[in-house]
Design a protein around this nucleic acid. Structure first.
Lengths: 338, 338
DNA sequence: CGGGCGAGTGTTAGCGTTCACAGTTAACCG
DNA sequence: CGGTTAACTGTGAACGCTAACACTCGCCCG
């Protein structure tokens, strides 16, 4: 029976219908005590009747809190970033926050900086920067001092707490797995130089080989794309019996190249990837890989961020590291001569 | 040399420093005419000096526009939705809008409805619902009347304009390609019943076969996952020489299953997928598939949405269809006996 | 029985913008 | 040189909400 109002109802309208002051309506809306049950009921009824929704701009104006969190990310088309952002979104929503996303096509120091400024101007309460590249990590310096922030894979960011997957440890698992199978040494197809994840995996690979006293072969470098893995696969020396590829997409390309060359996996060469794409289990052969729990990373980052929003911030943890785990499948086996 | 203010500067502060009224500052900020160049310069300088940023909550409160658009999507971890949302985000940002995302784990009528309500309460200017399931399409009815909205893959939504890829046409391309190669008929691994995309591809497949007067085999059904494609691959009758799989992930699983069965692709069986994942080119063998331009879909949806925000909405287009294209690779060839 | 207290409610004053005006110049025209 | 006009600038009032405080009861206590 309600007339379609030209203007959406405001608190005063509710107050009038319920026969109280707007302040009492506000109290009900914010679950404050000292409102008589019967009054509360009348107000709730009026809200229902009018289809009232509180105006969050007005609320944000006075409280200085928007309950919106900003996220800056690189190419959310990729599985890793997409999963991380998804995890962040889920965790934020569970905590009653909204997510405003800026997804960058290219990561340069300036583009990240601009994105951060852009979001900061939006009146957000905090910001998560999914910053897997060194340049992005540097741009973290441009986060305003008064804006709570968290970096994901942000390297040794100075001002900002960082959540990251233990890339070094994950790489160690992969390489050790291959050594345990009896391979003399392990080759590596790395990600792009300027990516922190690539750096960590490279380090984990090298450290593990050196710790085992093995020869450290030349590094092949790709750009994460299947194509670059394919090219690496064609450049891989015939003597190699084991390869640790820095992500699953490149591993796929490499598998393809090896198949074209008539090299059998795992009979002639063992291959380990990184990421555990949903597809990895169905590669030919199914790919042994290292799984990262992106959802957990997202959850941790929100946790850290919301921690900073508390009145008395808990001794703010500077780094949270999430363990990676090995998923053994059919792309790894003992070396040919064994 | 600026003192770290306890409170961020506001327009009045800028006005004081520049020796003008707050209204003139506002004029500069909004690029309105009739401000003396020298005054403008002084104001800009003051803004710079104070590090002033305009408070968007206050602005939104009075203009009744937040310049934020809401997006409701299903599992942004998947390539399709992720790419679409990415396209939406890019297009929106180019137009000066921010994106607030709600990503659903499961699509039910209620969850979509709740997400829409949730966003509507956020004071957004418009909403894009990436609604590839029938249930989600139904939930579109719960978009408030006064809130501009656009559906992506939204079926025959009544109230809301829809942007979608021409699934039927894409499927036709795939099936016709196989028939042209000389195959007697084409089998189909479909997506889940309640997905509109699955429905469209199924229809395109069936129509094309019927138009050509071919036998229409029983449909195998999956759930988009590689695993379900794998299972379908094991159920595929030995007589089949060509399969059109409703997405690339399932096609991957199917390829794996066929490989295990000793069935050669494309020698014994030809396979066509749908989506053109970045990985598809490096499957074994490289997958012939149908490409969808998700970015274009995103751009169109924003275009349609912003159109509704104009004062005099242009004769609002009810449906925009984006063509799909065939990408021939090595997984298709003439049938064995040919 | 006066005073204190606590529950419940109302009043007022912002929050930082933009909008609708109302001024104030200086320039221009006949 | 009076009057119209255009360019520029300022004033006051919203926008819808919350925070701080003030008020009114009824009740309990000494």
């Amino acid at each position: 029976m309600r007339v379609r109002a030209s203007r959406p109802p405001v608190m005063a309208d509710v107050a009038r219908v319920a026969g109280v002051s707007h302040q009492t309506v506000s109290r009900v809306l914010n679950d404050l005590p000292n409102v008589h049950p019967s009054t509360r009921k009348r107000i709730l009824q009026a809200i229902e009747e009018l289809g009232y929704r509180r105006n969050l701009s007005a609320r944000a104006l006075v409280t200085r809190h928007s309950r919106v969190l900003g996220v800056v990310s690189f190419d959310t088309t990729l599985y890793g970033p997409a999963s991380t952002v998804h995890g962040i979104e889920q965790a934020a929503r569970a905590a009653g926050y909204f997510i405003s996303i800026v997804s960058l096509k290219a990561i340069t120091r300036d583009s990240v900086k601009e994105a951060i400024q852009h979001l900061a101007g939006q009146g957000i309460d905090g910001i998560v920067v999914v910053a897997p590249q060194r340049q992005a990590a540097q741009a973290l310096a441009s986060v305003p001092d008064n804006l709570p922030a968290v970096a994901v894979e942000g390297g040794r960011a100075r001002k900002v707490p960082v959540v990251s997957v233990d890339q070094v440890g994950g790489a160690r698992l992969a390489v050790q797995h291959l050594l345990d199978l009896g391979h003399e040494t392990v080759w590596h197809v790395a990600g792009p130089d300027d990516w922190l994840e690539a750096e960590g995996r490279l380090k984990g690979w090298r450290d593990t080989l050196e710790a085992a006293g093995r020869r450290v072969p030349d590094v092949l470098t790709g750009d994460w794309s299947p194509r670059s893995g394919y090219e690496a696969g064609h450049r891989l020396p015939a003597e190699a019996t084991a390869v640790f590829v820095a992500n699953d997409q490149m591993a796929l390309g490499l598998l393809r190249a090896l198949s074209e060359r008539g090299v059998r996996v795992p009979d002639d060469v063992s291959v380990v990837g990184f990421d555990d794409l949903p597809e990895a289990e169905f590669f030919s052969p199914p790919l042994t890989t290292v799984r990262q729990d992106f959802g957990l990373v997202g959850r941790h980052s929100i946790e850290l961020l919301l921690g900073q929003l508390q009145k008395d911030p808990p001794a703010r943890q500077r780094r949270v590291s999430v363990a990676a785990s090995l998923v053994p499948r059919a792309s790894t086996a003992a070396p040919p001569g064994a």
